[in-house]
Design a protein around this nucleic acid. Structure first.
Lengths: 183, 183
DNA sequence: TAGTTTGTACGGTTTTTACTGTACAAACTA
DNA sequence: TAGTTTGTACAGTAAAAACCGTACAAACTA
């Protein structure tokens, strides 16, 4: 096998692995392939570049690069003399992981807490309603306890997201670089 | 509005929120609805119970309850005299979150590390190949650096998963229960 | 043993999602 | 200003996933 082929194969393996795991970011394999391809390019790419490299329509490139941008996996880049939009992969992968939490999980936490507080208020109202039957009262009380539990849980999750966002997670799990024993 | 209706509505809100956010677990809304419904049941349920409550086929219940089980969001339960399989939601939500990492993210980390090590070995081989052109050598060297970087990243992620799995995360982000000022 | 009950594999259908091509608005160029 | 270029909205199509009903194997019952 020729040298360039070997290089290509080594890259392909990584790209395909990314494609098969990108669902953890809520993205589809083709977006992962796009990301992986960009990762190995040393220059920012235009939508037309991507179309050419991946053999997909420009429209698709546009929508998926937007999805990648929303998760801050790729970002806009500039190069003098180029009028087209340029994109490159965000080079801090630790930050990308954190951004996933900041964006997707915090949103989820917020939605849940809103719903829980609303339902909790309604049930607490109901629990002091004298027209409610004894049996209903009991059910309501059980649900209130359940909602209190998951409220605590989501507040914990919120604090967890905070810990990622303000980088405190690196105190507990520090970044360690290989001791590069280069000659 | 009648009491039972109010209770139902308060539950419905929570269930729907879960359904809309369960994609973070790689599951579809209907599985989330199933989970949410089970959450408010105080008894374990059979597949037939679920079919009735959700108006979906037993086959669907079977497959989605398996998906929920795989993520340890629900677990088997036993009740004397009941021959059918019984399921209930895992009541430790913190543990469920941790299990998500243990199962989905660790798997992803492992797959990535395998691929990276393989490609890295190939590229290192290639980098000492005397038949390779100067230009290729340079490209290979760049890729090696990139792979080393993401190798470090996935090793960090692996340690992060460890920290969740062995509960050390609770040192950094402790569980706090509301001071329950019950009379 | 024969007769039930229960869960799931499998094939087919419906629904959803990914992707494409066209058409156009906005931003550049001359 | 008119003429390009570039990104994306939108509608239609292709592909994938969710869901259902049937059929059957495994486990239980009598």
């Amino acid at each position: 096998m020729e040298g360039h082929e070997k290089l290509e194969k080594a890259r392909e393996r990584i790209i395909e692995t990314i494609a098969q795991n990108i669902h953890l970011y809520g993205l589809v394999p083709s977006a992962g392939r796009q990301y992986g391809m960009m990762f190995f390019q040393n220059e920012p790419l235009t939508l037309d570049d991507m179309t050419e490299k991946l053999g997909m329509s420009k429209t698709s490139m546009s929508t998926s690069v937007r999805a990648l941008s929303d998760l801050k996996l790729v970002e806009r880049a500039w190069k003098k003399g180029v009028r087209k939009d340029l994109y490159k992969v965000t080079d801090d992968w630790y930050q990308s992981f954190i951004d996933l939490f900041s964006i997707k999980w915090r949103r989820s936490v917020t939605l849940h807490l809103v719903a829980i507080k609303k339902s909790l208020a309604e049930l607490e109202q109901l629990s002091i309603d004298p027209t409610a039957s004894e049996e209903l009262q009991k059910e309501v009380q059980i649900d209130i306890e359940k909602l209190k539990y998951i409220k605590n849980y989501y507040e914990w999750l919120e604090r967890l997201v905070d810990v990622f966002e303000d980088q405190k997670i690196f105190d507990l799990v520090p970044i360690m670089n290989d001791s590069e024993s280069d000659s």
